[in-house]
Design a protein around this nucleic acid. Structure first.
Lengths: 223, 223
DNA sequence: CCTATAACGGAGCGATTCGCTCCGCAAGGA
DNA sequence: TCCTTGCGGAGCGAATCGCTCCGTTATAGG
């Protein structure tokens, strides 16, 4: 133990596998929802089940890591958006980036995994960044005035999951994945254009409460 | 056999149960996706498994019935939309009605059930009606010109599934279902406004191919 | 009232799938 | 060469699947 240890012989392969696992987990989660199985994830990554469990002690731990990575990606996108000079281009680009990132597929695990301290912190930061983006756009008058940050969050989640794309991938039709991605990009463009302040009628109903998010991620009673 | 038979003793209860089953099947399908189980459907309907299997010989038969009902609902909505005088109000109302109907949850069963003759016929009619709606709106100049009927179909499917709503229902938080429905209604309004012809940039990429639908509903090789 | 019967609920079948453990083997640095 | 590290996947008990089967219950007709 106190001796100078040897170097790891297959470290490069391990790192490659880790990346493949995280990517596969995201895809399988998108395709199979909450019922995604570890076997399916390992197979999709081209990796043995043993390798998965050497890195993540449980399925839950893998999903927690995945959630933290998603929050990182969203936060980086939000900061890039704030660095953009044009308030509208920043916000629109942020929405499109988040929706297309494929990291929106985490929704089905909401409430099934424990929220780690890291997730909590990154999520708070995410809330602050989005609020800043929306407020800046409002102040510049480039966003319809009755849209709230919660509306934007819900819109990103709604656009982030693509039933078509998920199912084509689940059935192995990789030949159509590109067409489906391009098609969704058009839908995102349509929805984002609907956020501009040039529309006759105000949005229906009251602004949505953020309890729609917080309550979903709470673990159910018992454990 | 040739005698005048007795009347059915519990026929009223049977009809109530049938409606409850179809409604429950839709909800469970929305919440659990392709892995929805017959036991979950029966439980949600407040009905025994035996009663389900008396009416539908297999799980597939239940889903086929559900698909036919959805197509009926969509077609009726499309005809009401064509009867509307204002081409824009007609199309916008049609999209909102389809998206909110809750019958969009059938996507996950695409490709897992045999397409009945009735489904095929009703689907053809559905295609014709939508094409007419879109063309009328285009001719009136109230719809952005680069939007195709396939775009509209994909948009309806995208808006029809609500990750938030599905999951809240799956976790039994009926108290938040109404808030989630109202929130989605705002998103639908946003997306529909994005279809108006007042936007600077054209939609990205080529118009989507309808193979994105047809290929998904084809059974995989074998069986 | 009673009787006949259609419709009921759900225990339980075999088959499948789940998350996860464990171990024999391969790869590469010293 | 040997030793360390990571590898793949067979297989465990438990859970869940679609579906069958049967004893029970509620109601129309006499």
């Amino acid at each position: 133990m106190s001796q100078p240890r040897r170097r790891a012989p297959r470290q490069a392969e391990a790192e490659r596998n880790d990346r493949a696992l995280l990517r596969a987990a995201r895809e399988v989660l998108a395709a199979d929802g909450a019922h995604a199985s570890v076997a399916a994830i390992a197979t999709r990554a081209g990796v043995g089940i043993g390798s998965l469990y050497r890195r993540y002690r449980t399925k839950e731990e893998l999903f927690q890591k995945l959630a933290e990575l998603s929050l990182d990606i969203w936060n980086e996108a939000a900061e890039r958006a704030l660095a953009e000079e044009d308030p509208w281009e920043g916000l629109a680009g942020f929405i499109a980036a988040c929706a297309e990132s494929g990291h929106g597929s985490l929704a089905p695990v909401a409430g099934t995994i424990e929220i780690t301290e890291e997730m909590r912190i990154k999520n708070e930061r995410s809330d602050r960044l989005l609020a800043a983006l929306v407020e800046r756009a409002h102040r510049a008058g480039v966003l319809r005035p009755d849209v709230t940050p919660v509306d934007i969050s819900l819109l990103i989640e709604q656009l982030g999951r693509s039933p078509v794309l998920d199912q084509l991938r689940a059935r192995g039709r990789e030949d159509l994945v590109e067409a489906a991605t391009a098609a969704r990009r058009r839908l995102i463009a349509i929805a984002v254009d609907g956020l501009r302040p040039c529309h006759a009628r105000p949005l229906p109903g009251d602004p949505p409460s953020d309890r729609l998010f917080t309550e979903r991620w709470r673990r159910p009673a018992g454990e």
